[in-house]
Design a protein around this nucleic acid. Structure first.
Lengths: 359, 359
DNA sequence: CTTTATTCTGTGTGCGAACACAGTTTGATA
DNA sequence: TATCAAACTGTGTTCGCACACAGAATAAAG
């Protein structure tokens, strides 16, 4: 690598191409009114010198303002969406000086009507871009079609709707994260072990995430022909009756003497952990998803053995960053971005959280 | 949070404090020549308005240039230090417009004299900061003492030397990563299993990293009283005679019929994987460290089951970033920064690598 | 009450890029 | 050839900040 691209200014390009700074600028932003000769001369020098604009100077000079709307569910402290919110805040701070204003809008994740209300607000006063998690599928499709009509760019986080012209998608490959969960749960299970899968009916809508994780899980079972080696017991939990859930669990343990592990594909594994504590059940493998405060607590205590994480804050932050790159810096970006499947245990959770906090 | 700190300029502060921009600037950089009255007025407004300078405008205006020297071992493609180098390159690009020039200097990691030569060069022409991995302990101490005399700030990556006035340290808690390795390797081992630990004498010096990993590993064995349940076989490999190593390994397998797993605490587990392939040994657990290209290859193939990673590129990048924050932006930073212990398997390596590539 | 030194403060310029605006060239048409 | 719009190009201002420099206010000395 030569030490080109080091501090080459428009002025330099202009000088080398034998034109003025204005002309270089016109070529850079292809806004016409440039003779073929000049354009060619400039583009040639541009390439030779490997010019890269000073983005700070650019946004300092630019008078354009951008407004990004980010739609997220409202949340309780310690919940999953808190991390997402944090990511948006970080982005807001960092991109403020690039003339970008992040406007967050909250809706009730258990009430599709609240989502519709919020999206209508957005459509009333169109922003320059929208970032959302399409929790409510049909409502999201309706909203996005409106956005497409007005050519407002949008990005998905967490989950996606295929065949839409989204700018980026950041999220986890949940099939894969279910598959790997099965691997880590079942690899060392002795013959005849019983595994309990806890499902919870979501009040609002069905979550794609948990469905795919479930699929991935059973794919592993299939791939390794474990159907007969281990017995998988599927249990349905209520979303609000915890006392009832405890009793269900008690019943399960009474009727099945060889339960070795439990797993749940939603993020509420801490509830399960609490019940196991109540029932005094030790030496069970318990696996779940996402680093809710409560989940982390039980992970550190040892009740939960394993958590899979998906960097929700990064999903939010990066979707904003990429929107900037596209709209403002005109850079190429990847459309589909799978976030790593992070495997967290008691022994590596601390460093992980601290690192995430600061970077 | 109010929407203060949003776009408040020096000009605004000056207006509110009833002084000129120049005076505000003098207060901000406390370079004297300000009356007590003015200073108080300005600091008051500064606090009230929660002023935060536009860092981009700042480094655009500033004529100061900074030179950071980064010392890293030269490397072959696919080696560990390639990632570190990549991190430095990324930082170089990103901080170029903050008037920072990253100057990399390479030394031979197996020859302490080459390190000394390079450090002498650095001392001849002192940079504004130094970032290094103190591979050669004594030589590093000598070098750093010289740096301290001239008050040149420096940071450690990868490993650290205690009791020195380093700016930051980025690296992994290797004790913990050894501990967690033991946990993942031994948790599901049946009684009487044999485990092989491969050591390789490093040509240059002893690596602290591998020593601590080893310690962490045996701490787990101790904590769980596994000394009698599993048999741990320690084998010494040569650093260059691979044919010989293969024979050693063959011998080990002949004399021990119940080997279930192998581990090595340095980053060269791919060599071991190759030998196991040659010997046709399947169904063994093989665990190693760091995402060298070759390691990843065997991980994907399934010969290696698990790799622990430590984000070497981030270590490099963040140490540069923090040096900027300290020297240029006068921000507070953390001194000790443990990088997460990333657990990678066949199933999550792809997303991990791709994500790292782009972010 | 000057003169001179000292402390203090405002103004002006430049950093690199965006963009408006004015100014110049070209080419088509009367 | 004169006219005029269209195509093209250069200049100047602006963004928020740093810093130099000149100039004003104050204090100390004559």
């Amino acid at each position: 690598m030569t030490d080109s691209n080091h501090k080459i200014r428009i002025k330099d390009i202009a000088l080398l191409a034998g034109v003025s700074e204005g002309t270089v600028d016109r070529v850079l932003h292809n806004r016409g009114d440039v003779s073929v000769k000049s354009r060619e001369a400039v583009t040639k020098v541009l390439e030779e010198m490997n010019y890269s604009p000073n983005l700070f100077a650019r946004s300092l000079a630019s008078k354009k303002n951008f407004r990004f709307v980010c739609l997220i569910p409202s949340y309780q402290p310690g919940e999953y969406w808190e991390s997402v919110d944090k990511g948006f805040n970080q982005a807001a701070q960092e991109f403020l000086h690039h003339n970008i204003i992040i406007e967050k809008k909250f809706f009730n994740q258990f009430d599709n009507q609240s989502f519709v209300t919020v999206t209508e607000e957005v459509l009333q006063d169109l922003p320059d871009a929208v970032i959302l998690s399409p929790i409510f599928r049909n409502e999201s499709i309706w909203f996005i079609e409106k956005l497409q009509e007005t050519e407002t760019p949008f990005s998905f986080i967490d989950s996606l709707i295929e065949d839409m012209t989204y700018n980026t998608y950041y999220g986890q490959n949940s099939f894969q994260s279910g598959y790997i969960a099965a691997k880590m749960l079942l690899s060392s299970m002795s013959e005849g072990s019983q595994i309990v899968i806890i499902r919870t009916k979501r009040k609002g809508s069905v979550s794609n995430q948990t469905l795919s994780r479930n699929k991935g899980f059973f794919q592993f079972v299939d791939d390794n022909k474990l159907q007969d080696k281990v017995q998988i017991i599927s249990v349905e939990f209520s979303s609000n009756d915890e006392a009832g859930n405890l009793e269900i669990l008690r019943g399960i343990f009474e009727n099945n003497q060889n339960i070795k592990a439990l797993i749940t594909f939603n993020s509420k594994v801490y509830r399960l952990a609490a019940h196991l504590d109540t029932l005094g059940k030790m030496n069970l493998r318990l696996i779940g998803y996402d680093l809710l405060d409560e989940n982390v607590k039980y992970l550190k205590m040892g009740t939960i053995n394993l958590l899979f994480a998906q960097r929700p804050d990064k999903q939010a932050y990066l979707s904003v960053r990429d929107m900037c790159r596209k709209l403002i810096f005109r850079q190429e970006i990847n459309r589909i971005n799978y976030v790593p499947i992070d495997i967290l245990m008691k022994e590596n959770i601390e460093d992980y959280l601290r690192f995430n906090e600061n970077n």
